[in-house]
Amino acid sequence: MSLIFVIVIIYRSHTIRVLEPEYTIMQAMIDARTSKGLTQKELSIRSGIAQGDISKLENGNANPSIRTLQRLATAMGKTLRIEFL
């Protein structure tokens, strides 16, 4: 799983907006989980992280530690990679 801390979107009017890092992390988590065909509950069982906490992370209502991200990545058979661009 690759986490990129800045996403730039160019709109039709050529306005450039930068999305927050939290959105990037949330979307990467959701994409990784759904690509494996896992529900939040299944990921909870595999990772040992409460389903409610996974929901909070995916909804942007919590800030995951690197340790938590590593546990989630491992449970999904992914590699956690953090880059500074």
Rank of each mutant, 00 (worst) to 15 (best):
R67Q: 13
M26Y: 03
A28L: 01
G37H: 07
H14V: 09
D53T: 14
T79S: 09
E58I: 09
S35N: 13
E83Y: 11
L80V: 06
K78N: 09
E42F: 10
G48A: 03
L69A: 12
G52L: 02
N61R: 15
L43Q: 10
A75T: 05
S47M: 11
I4T: 08
Q70W: 14
Y11N: 09
G60W: 09
I16Q: 14
I4L: 08
R81Q: 12
L57F: 10
N59I: 02
M1G: 10
I30E: 01
S55Q: 00
M76C: 09
S13A: 07
G77F: 05
I30R: 10
I45W: 10
E22T: 07
T15L: 11
D31K: 09
R17P: 01
K56T: 01
S35C: 04
T68W: 08
S2N: 07
E58Q: 12
M1D: 07
E22V: 07
H14T: 13
R12D: 15
V6I: 08
A73M: 05
G48T: 06
K41A: 02
R12Y: 15
K78C: 07
E42T: 12
D31M: 02
N63D: 13
M29S: 00
A75W: 04
Y23K: 08
T79Q: 05
E22H: 07
D31R: 12
H14A: 12
A73Q: 06
M29W: 02
L72F: 13
N61A: 07
I45N: 13
A73C: 07
T39V: 13
F84D: 00
T39H: 14
I54D: 00
L80E: 03
T79F: 04
K56L: 04
I9G: 03
N59D: 04
Q51Y: 08
G77T: 08
T74D: 12
A50L: 04
P64W: 11
H14S: 12
A62R: 15
A32Y: 01
I9L: 08
I82D: 00
I30Y: 05
L38A: 08
M26G: 01
M26E: 05
H14Q: 13
L57N: 01
N59M: 04
D53L: 11
S44L: 11
S55R: 06
Y23A: 07
A32H: 00
G48Q: 03
A50P: 03
K36H: 04
